[in-house]
Every structure is written in C-alpha cells, then in structure tokens.
Design a protein around this nucleic acid. Sequence first.
DNA 1: GATAGGATTCACT
DNA 2: GTGAATCCTATCA
Length: 197
Amino acid sequence: MPIASVESLRSVLRRGAVHAAPRLLGCVLVHRTADGVRAARIVEVEAYTQDDPASHSFGRRTARNEAMFGRAGIAYVYVSYGMHRCMNVVTGAEGAGEAVLVRAVEPLEGIDLMIAARAWQGRPLRDLANGPGKVCAAMGIGMEHNAADLLDEQSPLSLRPGDPVESARVAVTPRIGITKAADWPRRFVAGGVERRA
DNA sequence: GATAGGATTCACT
DNA sequence: GTGAATCCTATCA
C-alpha cells in the first residue's frame, strides 16, 4: 500500500504506532537549515504505545512526554542518558500517547553536513546514522524540534512520503537497548538484514 | 532539596 | 566485549 501524499501519511499515522511503524520505513525525513538541506530515508523504527511499560507515555502524562500525547504527525524529541537525543513520530489519536521511535536512517542528501555535525572520522557510511542518538546528531535535530509538525511542508523539519518498503522485506524483531518489555516484537527494520549488537 | 535511573554511544582492552 | 561519560526528569523525603 503506497503512501502517496502527506494527507494519506497523516491518516496512516492516526491509526496508531504499530500500524504506522512499518509504513514509515522508506519515508524521508527532511531538515532545512541555514547550512543547507539534509534528507534521509527511514530504515529502522520502533513502536511505542501507552500500554507498553517501556514507553514514556506509560502511566503518567507529564511535561516531558506531553508532546507524545499530541496529534499524529508531530515530533517527540527527548534526551536519553543525558547526552543523546532521540526522535519519535507521534501517532494515534490525540491523547493516545503512541509514537514511533526513529532508530536509523539512510543518508540521501546533505551527507557532508551530517558528517560535519557528527565530527565523522572516515568510518563506514552505514554507521553514520544507525542509532537513535546518531539520527538526531546527523540530522541536527534537537529539543527545539519537540512538538514540531512533521507534516507541515513549511516546517524546517518535515516528513515526506517515500518509496514504500514491501512488507516482505520488513523484518520484525524484539527491541534494543531497553530494560522493560524488551522482547516485544515492535521493532521494524527495512531489508531485514540490519542488526545491532 | 536530593537522588536514582534511562528508548545510548564511543573508546579502550 | 566491557565500561565510562553525562544530564534531564520523576520520585521520594
């Protein structure tokens, strides 16, 4: 099911994190700054819902996770381990507390900017943005993008429909790097061959 | 007011 | 493969 327009993408997001996560694979994240344009194709995501003990929206609604309860299509950015930032795409109905974490992207445009942003040192390109913290570092995403509308074409940070990834090529696996409900099969990887230690 | 913990990454052994 | 770095937020006294 190709996602042809921003509006159809919004309706996909509204249906919830688990529905939207595999369909976000292949979509393109675009960030326009004074330095130039950066674009990257989403290749790995994780779905988080309110009934998920590992989710920030589990249990309590606070100032920190407020954006996660916003309307589908906005960004939820948070700081992890004090030094890394992670970006989510909010999904589901307003107040549902569902989001899809963008874990890895494939650089398309502005790769030189990404390398500069990450002080990259000639390591393999595939490692440039293959982790949630790296995605934000490479794309230049920060807390100032929290609650930004990704489906607004005028927004500096936006999400646009891309080539859909065939469901046969999407691998569903347990999640990474968390301690609660880590074995839930809510991680979606394009191509099915990506893996992390 | 103080403390514990976290959806991670990188350098080093 | 293992451990350190680092800081914001929630929770408790």
